[in-house]
């Protein structure tokens, strides 16, 4: 028992539980295990889990895997460098109009912000800031509450 706030009757319950004898395992368990061991022993080495492979096969597999990995990385890098060249050319030609539109939008937005800063009073900005902080804090609070409820249920 390892809690400081145990009721006295829990001690009795603890002792009663601890006094329970082991349950008798079903008689079929021994046969099942024996059958499973025999079935596993009849499997070819390559059908068993990697850790049960013969040592030479494990080492051979590791060497083969390493060679394959190095090859894949080398060929992959070569293919990617060719692909990257093509991609750069494509991006250059197709992104130009998009970048030009984005630049115009950004310029309009910045002008609007400058105009707004001149028209809106400092008190209003403080109020808006407070409202934004309140909304953000409520969002965090509600999120935490949901997480806690979900976690407690889990």
């Amino acid at each position: 028992m390892n809690s400081e706030e145990e009721k006295p009757e829990w001690d009795l319950l603890h002792r009663s539980l601890r006094a329970l004898p082991d349950r008798e395992a079903p008689r079929s368990l021994g046969d099942r295990v024996k059958r499973a061991i025999q079935e596993r022993s009849q499997l070819a080495w390559w059908q068993r889990p990697l850790l049960e492979w013969p040592k030479t096969m494990r080492l051979g597999g590791l060497a083969f895997g390493t060679v394959m990995l190095i090859g894949a990385v080398w060929f992959g890098a070569a293919a990617l460098s060719g692909l990257a060249e093509t991609a750069t050319q494509w991006v250059g030609s197709s992104l130009n109009p998009i970048l030009s539109v984005a630049g115009q939008v950004g310029s309009v937005l910045s002008k609007a912000v400058v105009l707004l800063l001149g028209k809106v009073s400092a008190g209003m900005w403080v109020g808006l800031g407070l409202v934004a902080t309140l909304v953000y804090a409520s969002g965090i609070g509600i999120g935490t509450l949901f997480w806690k409820v979900a976690n407690d249920r889990g």
Partner: peptide, 26 residues
């Protein structure tokens, strides 16, 4: 018996407890 007892008490189902006990002994 020790393995099976723990398994049946944790899982509450005899079939599951037997499956787990088998895996433990394997």
């Amino acid at each position: 018996n020790m393995v099976y007892s723990l398994a049946i008490r944790l899982l509450g189902r005899e079939a599951d407890a037997e499956d787990v006990s088998q895996e433990v002994f394997l």
